[in-house]
């Protein structure tokens, strides 16, 4: 009995240790929102999720993977395209957002249409403009694939392939995409310092922007109206389309401002192709509260660039699983 207890304790400690090493973040980050108790992280499940993320097998004609619109080199967004492209080059309705620090979010998509990370993948998989697949066909394709039979076995202890497991594994991989090694983060930890220009930019940012783009995640996770004119082609009214509440007209989820150098173009429809255009919008007549001189604009941009996380972009653990997927 005692031996058993000791073993159990040992196993527990090891497990906590493993989990911590799979998911850790700086002390100044807020608490996560994702309920890990319902989807315990494990190395094999994360690896399986990574495979699924990069594998075009998820789309109806095996041409499009999640990566097609969420590239690791763009902090998992889709650079150079205002709107996303799906199967048969169909154009989507919005600019693909970057994917990182997802464990801190409790709603997804620019209008918050999706309420849980696990359920998010259902949208691109079944959307006729994205991967155009059916859930039955997805499972059929995976069940025929020896590689997946083995990986599901390794991850779950038996080779049952069902949707629940697919969704949770993709979540596991996405949850491990944590951006926390920018210059700003090193500054917070006292490991680096800001230039005078960056400090001026930081002060201006705190005054003008951090209400919505709140540190250290650079979003307050709310839906806000930043006074963009409605896109006359897409007629995307943002949060309003979900709540039908007139207060929400043209409100969009406040995006994080980490990794901006990798995620252009900006806003839900990709209307601004660089940060000067963005800042011009914020100092324009619409956005009354802010009036920025050219010098101040440059100062703010220099601060925004401290939020780039090169380590995250280059992290090999986030990238295409070459040895597995091409084998």
């Amino acid at each position: 009995m005692k031996v058993f207890l000791k073993l159990a304790l040992f196993y527990g400690i090891i497990n906590v240790f493993i989990e911590e090493s799979l998911f850790n973040y700086p002390e100044y980050f807020p608490k996560t929102k994702y309920d890990f108790s319902k989807n315990n992280l494990s190395k094999t499940k994360i690896e399986l999720g990574r495979m699924l993320f990069y594998d075009p097998i998820l789309s109806i004609d095996s041409t499009i993977s999640c990566e097609s619109c969420h590239s690791p080199y763009n902090a998992f967004s889709h650079t150079d395209h205002r709107l996303s492209h799906g199967i048969n080059d169909k154009i989507g309705k919005r600019n693909a957002p970057p994917l990182f620090n997802l464990a801190w979010k409790s709603s997804f998509m620019r209008d918050g249409a999706v309420n849980h990370l696990d359920m998010q993948s259902l949208v691109p998989i079944t959307d006729s403009l994205e991967m155009g697949n059916s859930l039955d066909n997805l499972l059929y394709k995976l069940k025929k694939n020896q590689k997946y039979i083995t990986m599901f076995y390794e991850a779950f202890g038996d080779s049952t392939i069902n949707l629940d497991r697919v969704l949770k594994s993709i979540s596991q991989f996405e949850l491990t995409l944590i951006s926390k090694n920018s210059k700003y983060d090193r500054f917070r930890l006292g490991e680096d310092h800001f230039s005078d220009q960056e400090i001026r930019g930081y002060e201006l940012f705190k005054k003008n922007c951090s209400n919505c783009h709140k540190e250290p995640m650079f979003t307050n996770y709310k839906f806000e109206n930043n006074f963009l004119d409605i896109n006359q082609v897409l007629l995307d009214s943002g949060r309003f389309s979900i709540t039908k509440n007139s207060d929400d007209f043209m409100s969009f989820e406040v995006p994080s401002l980490r990794n901006l150098s990798y995620t252009y173009p900006y806003m839900h429809d990709g209307r601004f192709s660089n940060l000067f255009e963005v800042l011009k919008h914020y100092s324009g007549p619409k956005f009354n509260s802010v009036s920025l001189t050219e010098k101040e604009t440059i100062d703010i941009i220099s601060f925004l660039l401290t939020l780039n996380d090169k380590e995250f972009i280059l992290n090999p653990e986030n990238k295409f699983p070459v040895n597995k997927l091409l084998k």
């Binding site: 309920d35 309420n115 849980h116 259902l122 859930l135 069902n162 949707l163 629940d164 949770k168």
Partner: peptide, 24 residues
């Protein structure tokens, strides 16, 4: 139940009783 993510069994979206594009 509607905000608890993937639950499997009778609640598996494979049953065709889930709205993906606007969770629920």
């Amino acid at each position: 139940i509607n905000v608890s993510g993937s639950l499997g069994g009778a609640l598996d979206p494979i049953e065709g009783m889930y709205w993906a594009w606007q969770s629920g």
